[in-house]
Design a protein around this nucleic acid. Structure first.
Length: 464
RNA sequence: GCCCCCAUCGUCCAGUGGCCUAGGACGCCGCCCUUUCAAGGCGGUAACACGGGUUCGAAUCCCGUUGGGGGUGCCA
């Protein structure tokens, strides 16, 4: 059994494509079959060759290894030309010189029914400037197929127009290339988005006319939709896989989440290793209804996967945000220091891109200035803040410099003055880290060091 | 307009004629834990679109209605 993922390099890999690739991959691995790639770049106008590699890298990031060498349709023109020649010779296709405008105008005068009217069917035209080749769709009969997910689906030939199989510039249309390649590559199952379900009868008709032996099974996956329940669009929706990589999503979280869109494991355990999903996955159990791409849930998955990392893994996965995209000067960063805080940061972030925000106060010469935090704590209760900072200054000056000791030292204030610990830690937190939220305070101070901590407290005290 | 597909909590998934006073997860709300924020624990909120059948019995089968989506290109 062999499946294929056939992206068109007209854009980066998006969430929908990633899901299609994943389900093909899962099905292939589950069945012990092959998962091959095919680049559908027959439209020379729109294809952007440089995007092919972007798509490959995204697939690699997701961990969806493919079998064999990817096939590029742009390099197989002779195969399609041969197929078109055969169709023409058999009378299954014919030349047409109607311009799109003429087709449209006639459709309108007929009463709004769009589509080609068969104008050139029997005109006996040959090749020529501006001539396309159209497939002659039988006037009667039906094309039907059994969809693994949807059951029997059928179309009346009468509702199909004579579609173009070869453009006027000589390049083949994707239906044609599809029919030829699926046969040539020995594809047994076509697993793709539901948005392509209506091209299936055309491909089937083509296979029939071409005399392609064997059966092709189809499975049309439910579309992934946005909050308005519309098909995800590159224009209006946030769907670039690359963007998710940049935001600090883990590929295992992305792949795991994607697997739950349109499918669910029988035991209900959603977050689990890909290897288990491969075992449990059943194409026939995939839902037929569209699924909403819920970033909140994706984030939850991501958080789970991040917390599941070992510290070395967490550190290495965060590399990019610790060096290249860090808000601090590279020379101020110190991995050993980061590693101390890492476990505390790890259980607080949902995205790796959030990591710098939890430790920047250590590597920046001054605590980041967050006005809202300052106002909330220092602005609202300046007397308490001053009193707490003075207390901290005094106790921190001489005590042992470790988290437990620092905690006792600072919270003695809480006992002495009958103030809640939360109120006591706040001014010190804002003074030293700049924000009201962050990793546990005393571990943070331990890393910051006595001198810097006292300096920052003094600086904040002076600002009150 | 025409063609095709779809229809269980706000969302994702389970449920394949009786185990359903419909289960899990995300989200949301509350409580606990707690130096902030998280994480974790406990609890709660919330759905079978509607109408007909079939059947002793329907979320599950059939038909219709409504609603939603996709397609309708010399894009894929």
């Amino acid at each position: 059994m062999r499946v294929r993922f056939a992206p068109s390099p007209t854009g980066y890999l998006h969430i929908g494509g990633a899901r299609t690739a994943l389900f093909n991959w899962l099905f292939a691995r589950q069945q012990g079959g092959q998962f091959v790639l095919r680049i559908e770049d027959t439209d020379t106008e729109r294809s952007r060759p440089e995007l092919i590699d972007v798509i490959f890298r995204a697939l690699e990031w997701l961990g969806l290894e493919w079998d064999g060498t990817p096939v590029h349709q742009s390099q197989r023109g002779h195969l399609y030309a041969g197929a078109i020649e055969k169709l023409l010779a058999d009378g299954a296709a014919y030349w047409c010189d109607c311009t799109p405008d003429e087709v449209k105008a006639r459709a309108e005068s007929r009463g709004g029914r769009p589509g080609y009217d068969g104008h050139c069917r029997d005109r006996g035209l040959g090749p020529g400037e501006g001539h396309v080749v159209r497939f002659r769709v039988p006037d009667e009969g039906t094309v039907a197929f059994d969809d693994v997910i949807r059951g029997r689906v059928s179309f009346e030939n009468a509702n199909l127009e004579d579609f173009v199989v070869q453009r006027s510039n000589g390049s083949p249309m994707f239906h044609l290339a599809n029919a030829v390649d699926d046969a040539d590559q020995g594809i047994t199952h076509v697993v793709r988005g539901e948005d392509l379900i209506n091209v299936t009868p055309k491909v089937l008709l083509l296979r029939q006319a071409l005399g392609t032996p064997g059966e092709l099974a189809f499975a049309h996956l439910p579309l992934i939709v946005n909050e308005k329940r519309q098909k995800l669009s590159k224009r209006r929706d946030d769907v670039s896989v690359g963007d998710y990589i940049d935001r600090g999503y883990l590929p295992e979280a992305m792949v795991n989440y994607l697997a739950t869109l349109g499918w669910g494991p029988p035991d209900g355990i959603e977050i689990r290793p890909l290897a288990e999903i491969v075992q449990l996955f059943r194409l026939e159990d995939v839902n037929a209804a569209g699924a909403f791409f819920d970033v909140k849930k994706l984030q939850h998955f991501n958080g789970e996967y991040i917390r599941d990392l070992s510290i070395p893994q967490f550190v290495s996965r965060s590399t990019r945000w610790l060096y290249d995209e860090a808000p601090w000067a590279p020379e101020r960063f110190d991995v050993a220091t980061f590693e101390v805080l890492a476990p505390l940061v790890q259980e607080r972030v949902k995205l790796l891109s959030e990591v710098p925000g939890y430790v920047d106060f250590v590597f920046l010469p001054e605590p980041p200035l967050d006005e809202a935090s300052w106002e909330k704590v220092m602005g609202k209760a300046p007397e308490l803040a001053a009193s707490v900072l003075d207390h901290a200054t005094e106790r921190f000056a001489t005590c042992e410099w470790d988290a437990p000791t620092l905690e006792v030292a600072l919270f003695s204030y809480a006992d002495e003055h009958g103030v809640a610990k939360g109120k006591v830690q706040a001014p010190v937190r804002v003074a030293t880290t700049g924000r009201t939220v962050g990793p546990p305070l005393f571990e943070s101070l331990e890393v910051l060091g006595r001198d810097e901590t006292l300096r920052r407290i003094a600086s904040a005290r002076a600002r009150l």
